[in-house]
Design a protein around this nucleic acid. Structure first.
Lengths: 351, 351
DNA sequence: CTGAAAGCGCTAACAA
DNA sequence: TTGTTAGCGCTTTCAG
């Protein structure tokens, strides 16, 4: 019933536990003969070491924590793929913790991690997070943290981000080039790094093109899709209704499209839409969606790689590892200039 | 730098470690006064217990393992949400392990779990999995396993599934009612429980409606979206080209739509499509997609709840906990009878 | 009510 | 080359 342990293995082989331990770790102190004998018996008896026992002895738990707002989002699930691939290469496991965009949850999770449940943490902060004491505390307790995507600028550690400002600028500029002069911006937080940088990129583009920013065109969305649908609808109902939308996160896609349908606004004829999104289905939406596609997988991989560097070398300086990986503007039907009635499709090419 | 431990706490308070431990666990053997003193100091000094030290002492690691083929899939990411919600209620953490549809990976992961990295496992097997020794071995080593969605029938433990056979039958029947008489089925595995049950439901419906099943209409898809696109295109190019498609998993949506576009087949006029899918964007696709929506969140929750029951009560019989939670056929534009030229939209109502 | 001590499974310094 | 032994941080008898 119970898994065999090293002691029982030692008994079986009439050797001491330390010999077993060393043999299993392929130590040079042990003869080839004994090593083989031990490894064979271990395999035969199905011995699997208890990772937490070795973790206690000063070594690592071989778990890393990934703290993110949610999983049901292409960006985060692709990032997890990247993280997992690196973790696996390093013999590590991935503990997923969801904050559900709550600062309190985030604090609780990080606090718990001080107990050494994980050896290091990859963090993308919640939309509510504006303070960073909880993060600094974890770091100062010796648990390395690497940010990805949603960072806290004031925390001194590595940050893997994408070029939020520039890509938002480009997206807005693209809308302007396509003829939009009343462009709305849909954000999700007043404090979140990505939301702010994307907002700034948007504002910069408006300014460059001498378009007056309209406060009524800047919408702060919530965590609830139904609610967002209503908010966006209201945005579209106002007197000076926008003819372009920059949506700063993927989950706003559905409410935007539905609000347009319900307002009988045709995309892209009446209003053009661009969205920060990694949705695979972007190209088969009605119409296909112009996106700013983030390098989600690569961001996850880079963040994880950096964390493992810090985990391997003591005194590795995480401050120097920060990286900005650019996003790509993928132009599709939702921002096309196509005349009314023409079907708007992206090329049927799989990326 | 290092986190404080129970010994240092004891020193600080001039009490023994055992008293501290008991006080922290709110033991009745300890006076209220001491308890308060201990708890206050623990909070002040930011004491967080090391979970793996207690895990060693016979108690639990408070980690559960979730073994799934992938995360970038609405079904699995929603299921994770359900699992995580229950784990949190129980003070547990969730270790996500991806098999990437590989049997070898699955074996390696489960083997590793014998070392007690996790207290229990939620498992959705890979498309390649046809044997179950590795699962039985884990169970017989005392690690409880609960299946969800993709099960191994022959393993004696709890299984949380949806009504794959019935819903596939309904979907196929729906296509028939909408006028399809040459219906293709896209599967992903010859051995996988869900793929087979969905295939059987499809075949049953054909039989009931006296439609002869055509082997050329049954496609075994791969793990690669581009490849699937080509396979589906080939399916649509054959002489007796189908006018209806039942796609058994979500990730086939994009290749199906793109293959239709490239073959200049209009959905739903030339060909109707229904897909097992939990995509939020189903309703804003071009055209909106008729889906069999699985109760992903609930399945995750139920599976996790069952696992925790087994974790709490020793000798809880997991064989009796199995549950089948029905899916829903959500009819949208991709199977509509609408005449050519009419825009096909689902109602702009958010679910 | 509080404390001393054993031990969970493993590693590593030190002995032999 | 192998064995002895002392912990890692915590819980839990068993004594006091």
């Amino acid at each position: 019933m119970k898994n065999i342990n090293i002691k029982e293995l030692a008994c079986e082989l009439k050797l001491s536990v330390s010999t077993i331990s060393k043999a299993l770790h392929d130590s040079h102190e042990i003869s080839e003969h004994t090593k083989r004998r031990v490894q064979e018996t271990a395999a035969r008896l199905n011995y699997v070491p208890n990772p937490y026992a070795s973790s206690l002895r000063g070594r690592k738990s071989k778990n890393i924590g990934v703290v993110i707002p949610e999983v049901a989002d292409s960006f985060f699930s692709l990032a997890i793929n990247g993280i997992e691939s690196v973790a696996k290469e390093n013999g590590y496991h991935v503990l997923i913790c969801l904050t559900h965009e709550s600062f309190e949850n985030e604090k609780t999770i990080l606090k718990e991690f001080q107990g050494r449940r994980v050896d290091g943490v990859l963090l993308s902060v919640s939309r509510e997070t504006s303070k960073s004491d909880h993060i600094n505390e974890l770091i100062s307790n010796g648990v390395p943290v690497v940010f990805f995507d949603r960072v806290c600028d004031e925390v001194q550690t590595a940050k893997i981000t994408t070029d939020d400002f520039e890509s938002s600028y480009k997206a807005t500029e693209h809308l302007i080039h396509q003829g939009c002069d009343k462009i709305a911006f849909l954000g999700i937080s007043k404090t979140l790094s990505i939301s702010n940088k994307r907002l700034e990129g948007y504002l910069k583009a408006l300014k460059e093109y001498k378009i007056k920013a309209d406060r009524k065109h800047i919408l702060l969305c919530t965590d609830d899709t139904k609610q967002n649908y209503l908010l966006i609808k209201k945005l579209l109902q106002q007197v000076n209704s926008p003819n372009g939308i920059v949506a700063s996160v993927e989950k706003l896609t559905t409410p935007v499209y539905k609000a347009c349908v319900s307002m009988k606004l045709k995309i892209p004829e009446d209003i053009k839409v661009v969205c920060f999104s990694n949705l695979e289905t972007a190209s088969i939406l009605s119409p296909s969606l112009t996106t700013i596609t983030q390098p989600a997988f690569e961001m996850g991989r880079s963040a994880a790689k950096l964390l493992f560097k810090a985990l391997q070398k003591t005194n590795f300086n995480l401050n120097e590892g920060s990286l900005v990986i650019p996003s790509a503007l993928v132009v599709r039907g939702s921002t096309s200039k196509a005349k009314k009635g023409m079907p708007v499709f992206s090329k049927p090419v799989l990326q």
